[in-house]
Write a protein that binds this DNA or RNA. Structure first.
Length: 514
DNA sequence: CGGATTTGACCAGCGC
DNA sequence: GCGCTGGTCAAATCCG
């Protein structure tokens, strides 16, 4: 019973505190972090048990220097094995202290236990590293494949259209890259004319837009790392106040297509009674409005975990089913994320990449039988939708669906004001959809898309990563009203959206926690 | 008292 | 040009 509780602390809303976006988030987050650190920190154990366990200090030595400590909490929580042992260990320690003279056996047992935990810790780290490596490798391969695909499409179109301009070139890359980061700044000519500024949300915004082309071919691992502190606010313009003259200027200077790209969103839907899901971040509510067509008000939140973080999110209940909570994130955090948040962030990034790449359906279960690394999940079935009906594409991970194969859908409306890369326009899954003339050619190469899609969908790394992230959410029993510890919500799935690590994206997580 | 939330007002984009 | 809608601001209010 102890184990579940720990998972709650780490995964649920503890990072977000008890009240949505409230001060409680900070406290909760801190506590959780400590929990994770404690869990893995042998040094702490050593300190606590020092008086009782003076011998073999090396056995309690912390993990090797330089070894990453981040993410560990997440994976441990997700797949943990040794975590549950902690309480028992502590009990042993206590008893050992009080009866040290007569409990040498306990000391020995305790040492053995610590050794075992240490081994498990190393194994878990190793597994984590391996997993992350595979995952990022897959992403890199995907990006390369998409890039090649776009080039081929462009060439073929030119041949077929006798030199007519192809819509693919610029936009294709833009859409392929959801990623943020803006680290690589770009040689984009449009930027050269802009006034130089120090890093700021606006600046990042601009950089992000202009760097889109390059990002398309930049490995996600480089573009975004969990510990990435680089300000990468590629927040979409829609989230940025348009009252600022400077912003207006920047907007004008940017290309229309770039704007569209920056508005890309990624979302996840889930059921939850809580007013707001816990996503490991601290949010401040700055507005609420009634949206057309939905009796439920839409709340607007801004990330306050770090100054200058431009990530914002919308929280609204589904009009059709009020038990479904839809949280939409947009922009990238310019600060480190809690492990729980990073898990979802990575997952959504992968999902978005997959969707944007043109993949439409994955027949794979989220549970990867080959790895056995992740346990089957009740909400294994997830549907992701990419919709361009809005001025910007929205990727939605629907966790409200009954168990079943994962489905990834892309939707594109004919009214889309910007051109999308070939892969983006493969509406096979969207009946009745009409594509702009310039996009029609995309249908000429369905087989390629299918191939890419199948490759991605069948990749164990992706499905495993997705499964892990979702599982972590499911494991969070606490309600996620965004405030971690909200007791009002029933134990259930609480989405812990990583903050959208999507470059310019808005991640909507709807949690199904009923 | 400081920080978070509420809520009406304001602004921009878009369609007619 | 006007109205609608979405998004944001900021003063008032609430709360710990």
């Amino acid at each position: 019973m102890e184990r579940p509780r720990r998972m709650d602390l780490l995964h649920s809303g503890d990072y977000s505190g008890n009240d949505p976006g409230g001060a409680g988030d900070r406290g909760g987050a801190r506590g959780d972090v400590i929990q994770e650190v404690d869990f893995f920190s042998k040094s702490r154990q050593r300190d606590e048990a020092a008086s009782c366990l003076p011998e073999n200090p090396e056995k309690y030595s912390p993990s090797p220097p330089g070894e990453p400590s981040i993410n560990m909490g997440l994976h441990l929580l997700t797949m943990n094995s040794g975590g549950s042992q902690q309480p028992a260990v502590e009990e042993k320690k206590n008893s050992g202290c009080s009866n040290s003279n007569s409990n040498s056996n306990k000391l020995v047992a305790l040492q053995a236990e610590l050794d075992r935990l240490g081994d498990e810790n190393r194994k878990l780290r190793s597994m984590l590293d391996h997993l992350m490596k595979n995952y990022t490798d897959l992403q890199n391969q995907l990006l390369l494949a998409m890039q090649q695909q776009a080039r081929k499409a462009e060439d073929s179109q030119k041949d077929n259209m006798n030199g007519m301009p192809s819509p693919v070139p610029l936009t294709a890359k833009q859409f392929m890259d959801p990623g943020p980061t803006c680290m690589q700044d770009t040689e984009d000519p449009s930027k050269s004319g802009e006034e130089e500024e120090e890093p700021s949300p606006l600046r990042n915004h601009l950089d992000h837009a202009s760097s889109f082309k390059e990002q398309a071919i930049v490995p996600l691992t480089k573009r975004r790392l969990p510990t990435d502190n680089i300000p990468s606010e590629q927040t979409s313009p829609s989230w940025v106040s348009n009252k600022s003259p400077k912003q207006a200027q920047e907007r004008n200077s940017d290309q229309t297509s770039e704007l569209a790209c920056r508005k890309a969103r990624v979302s996840v839907r889930a059921r939850s009674d809580a007013p707001m899901i816990s996503d490991g971040c601290q949010w401040r509510k700055y507005g609420q409005k009634m949206a057309k067509g939905n009796p439920c008000p839409r709340a607007y939140y801004r990330c306050t975990m770090a100054a200058g973080c431009s990530v914002r999110k919308q929280v609204q209940r589904c009009a059709e089913d009020k038990t479904i909570l839809i949280t939409t994130y947009e922009g990238n955090h310019n600060h480190p994320l809690p492990p729980a948040a990073m898990a979802m962030a990575n997952t959504t990034t992968a999902a978005a990449t997959m969707l944007l790449s043109g993949s439409t359906t994955s027949k794979d279960s989220l549970t990867n039988p080959t790895t056995g690394f992740y346990q089957p999940m009740p909400y294994a079935s997830t549907m992701a939708t990419l919709s361009a009906s809005a001025p910007f594409p929205t990727i939605t991970l629907d966790l409200t669906q009954p168990p079943g194969p994962v489905q990834l859908h892309r939707q594109q409306t004919p009214a889309t004001p910007f051109s999308l890369p070939l892969p983006m326009y493969m509406p096979q899954k969207v009946p009745g959809m009409v594509l702009p003339p310039g996009l029609q050619f995309g249908q000429q190469q369905p087989s390629v898309m299918d191939t890419v899609t199948a490759a991605i969908a069948s990749d164990p790394n992706f499905t495993s990563a997705l499964a892990a992230a979702i599982k972590s959410i499911m494991a969070a029993p606490r309600s996620s009203d965004g405030t971690a510890g909200n007791s009002t919500s029933p134990p259930a799935l609480h989405v812990v959206p990583g903050s959208p690590q999507f470059p310019q994206s808005c991640t909507t997580f709807s949690t199904n926690t009923n």
